[in-house]
Design a protein around this nucleic acid. Sequence first.
DNA 1: ACAATTATTGACAGCGCTACCATCGGATTG
DNA 2: CAATCCGATGGTAGCGCTGTCAATAATTGT
Lengths: 343, 343
Amino acid sequence: MGRKQTKSGKIRLTEVAKLAGVSPITASRFFRNPEALSLSKRERVDSAVKELGYVPNLAARALASHRTEVIGVVIPSLTNNVFADVLRGIYDSSEGSRYTIQLANTRYSILQEEKVLRLFRAQKPAGLIVTGINQTAESRTILESMNCPVTQIMEIGDSPVDMMVGFSHYDAAFAAISHILEQGRRRIGFLGARMDPRVQRRFEGYRDAMKAAALFDPALIVTTSVPTTVTLGGTLFADLLAQTPDIDAVFCVNDDLALGVLFECQRRQISVPRDLAIVGFNDLEFTASAVPALSSVRTNRYEMGRHAVTMVIDAIEGRRPQEPVIDLGFQLMVRESSMPSST
Amino acid sequence: MGRKQTKSGKIRLTEVAKLAGVSPITASRFFRNPEALSLSKRERVDSAVKELGYVPNLAARALASHRTEVIGVVIPSLTNNVFADVLRGIYDSSEGSRYTIQLANTRYSILQEEKVLRLFRAQKPAGLIVTGINQTAESRTILESMNCPVTQIMEIGDSPVDMMVGFSHYDAAFAAISHILEQGRRRIGFLGARMDPRVQRRFEGYRDAMKAAALFDPALIVTTSVPTTVTLGGTLFADLLAQTPDIDAVFCVNDDLALGVLFECQRRQISVPRDLAIVGFNDLEFTASAVPALSSVRTNRYEMGRHAVTMVIDAIEGRRPQEPVIDLGFQLMVRESSMPSST
DNA sequence: ACAATTATTGACAGCGCTACCATCGGATTG
DNA sequence: CAATCCGATGGTAGCGCTGTCAATAATTGT
């Protein structure tokens, strides 16, 4: 004999079907494809569901249909503010849809990324959102074999696995440096921490902009693989000053570093922007109220999250986008820290 | 006839069992309770699993066992840095375990909380982690009916649904105010934004500390229900100054507000700490490198996340903790912004 | 009016796993 | 040496749902 009888109180699809006077399969269709039902049956099933308080058993559904309603999201960090905004967009967009978000954190490790992708593959997600375009060959193979829509976020590039939404970190950094150059600054330092692929691209934008102006000088560059903190911004800036005392501007790969630089300037009585211009990246909220307000590059992170989910869901449901790659661009937010000094 | 034959490549538990020369049920036990197998069979199943690259079908497992291996996590915000740290702890601890984290965001709405709890109930999670102790009666009923371990995080209180890990926001704020009073400050302002229950408790700590010193004055208080930003800190501080110009200290319910106050002071040439002491809350990383460094109350958020997961998993697996309520405490981080002025 | 097409509906089997119980051999006991 | 117990293993019958295809009803075209 099998197991204990089903608890009498449990409501299954069969009960709903019975109450509605239809077959179980028709009741099932009510959830998956309501348009296929005649209006009368649809109403009967609907009220039966409500009357019984029926809740579908997702495990049974997944087992029978070989599908899940899970969208996997792979991000490199939970601490980085940047991803908080993206995630907010992702969760906001997924709410109200039938899909559930499953989050995985790689901590900036591509091996960890392979591992979580393998895990996701085993669970047959309905769709996937992954960060960046620098997957290992192995990861790419997994992604391509997944047989579900995939959106790469945060940046854009030439060979999407499937879809992409992001912006060009290279262009953004190039634009930031061009702006600083326009202010007449010539010795523009570069401060970078945790040089992940996107930060690397910002560096390339910096490098090329400086080279184009014939102002590139390795002595202007200080980077580290250590994760970003505000304090680190101060430290790196101190290193830069020791190495190259005649700098007149600093481009920081993110706003936390920029804030650290600002604090270090306050500590050393370096006047910003008179003695030093500062430009950050991401346009976190605090940049606007710092003293002086910090220039930064605004990136549309919340929208990125929203777009990513929308694209994936649309693709799952057969509405493939015309254009698989969306460039959300960036805006240079010029504030006091990189404007002509009023003094 | 039923459906298409199983894809020949698909590896099920049956295949593993066959290769290992055992019954499927024994192979199943290999995963759920390996100690129950004899050493020889255990090894045979183990190598069969590896040889075939078998991956369990979680949906089938959930359907057959009426259990999932999901731990639901309910938090009020994804943007708030505080939760980023907690989440990091949660994800770090869950990694390597068999459990999967399912995140839900309530955006500080108790109705949204009810909704996500109802959703979770339908999925029969193995355990649950929820933020705070101010659930609605309905939410509490759901939690109690869930029949799985529940840990409330972020604060502690008298009547846990099940388990708790957090600290007393009241005590923390009381201690912060006591410290400021010890510095000889008498007119201590209170700045609060998004007055969620925990922030409310911090207010009560402030209020009682001030009353105990016979220094409580409603004119010292400025609060708003708007979400916290650094900019808002400056705005609220401006309001406070307008309302009560003779303040000599400000307690901010979080570090973002405190940073905003600091910037506003820089803007108005108010010397910190000489003219004004500032104390924040949470001890975010930047407080230590601000100029002057900001005093704050350190809370052990990462550990909170780790503990919460550990407690839930232990309880799921029958190892109930002796003490269901863990107080992680707090540390007052006294820095320049609230020390005697050196000037 | 009748065949051909299209919308609705239902029957059946089975997705891959585990709960429940039965079994079986060997160790322990008196 | 029989009675008892225990640990290891297997057989059976589903868990609750949906894919496939067939059957029926409604609609259309000529």
